[in-house]
Design a binder for these strands. Structure first.
Lengths: 144, 144
DNA sequence: TAATATACTACCAAATTAGTAGGAATATTA
DNA sequence: TAATATTCCTACTAATTTGGTAGTATATTA
């Protein structure tokens, strides 16, 4: 049960934007360089973050990407969801209809518990929280 | 972040054995039929469960598989681990060495929290717990 | 208009996951 | 001991997902 690089890269990228906050749009290329991610691949991830309304883009010269909202108003759960898709580990957790026996299924209870536990953790942290914690530790932050 | 069918099938299969408890070895073919899993594929999963010491096999006519221990002594965490591999969502959670900045990484804290939350849920349930809950609900049980 | 960025669409390659095939080994039954 | 039932083992294949590339269109600035 591994997290895709898609999500890992995406989180790193948006945290980079969060750190850059206020300094105007940050170019994709710069994010890619600092995070050591293929620029072309990151382009796709940015598109996802954009269509999810988490970042805004500025086209043309001096363009780039900025957070669509302050970093303390973006929860990790949002970032996670739009990149990784649902947290769902098993389909029936969200959609009981997909299995006739779902209603009384014990295993499903476990998957549901796991689901909730993950959501809870993701819901609890904003981008700013992460940056603060990282700074408090004197770290280069957000690296995954 | 989806659970592999490998894990889902494996859990269903071992729960089938748990339900069958005491009635002697249950044939792979029977498990496959009842759970609607390809027998040939299940064969591989059983091999995994066997090498993990969770089930025992009996060869030859009237052979089959049985739980290696009572169903109330097998935790879902064990089943999960041997099938899905580690719960780890991101490498650095287990192996801080894999990333120079891991020590002070805020994102890593989140991944670690998720990791722990999942383990906790898996650790809390034994196979028998699941069967009991399912029976209490009057369900066909364990179906995923 | 030239230079600099993102936007969009399509494609490709590697890795992983899911599933198949066939026969060898072993135990039971008769 | 012969026939049969069953697990065991190895290899192969197919489908899906993931990660990454290429090229062109479009918008902005200077």
């Amino acid at each position: 049960m591994k997290l895709s690089t898609r999500t890992r890269y995406g989180v790193r990228a948006i945290l980079e934007l969060a750190e850059n906050g206020g300094k105007g749009p940050m170019q994709l290329k710069a994010v890619a360089r600092r995070q050591d991610i293929s620029a072309k691949y990151l382009e796709q991830l940015m598109a996802v973050l954009k269509s999810a309304g988490l970042v805004r883009s500025v086209r043309g010269a001096k363009g780039g990407y900025v957070l669509a909202r302050p970093s303390n108003e973006i929860r990790l759960s949002e970032v996670f969801h739009c990149l990784e898709g649902t947290v769902t580990t098993v389909e029936c957790v969200q959609d009981a209809e997909c299995c006739q026996r779902a209603a009384g299924c014990a295993a499903r209870l476990v998957w549901a518990q796991i689901h909730e536990a993950i959501e809870k953790v993701l819901e609890a942290a904003t981008l700013q929280d992460l940056i603060d914690k990282a700074r408090a530790r004197g770290a280069v932050s957000y690296h995954i």
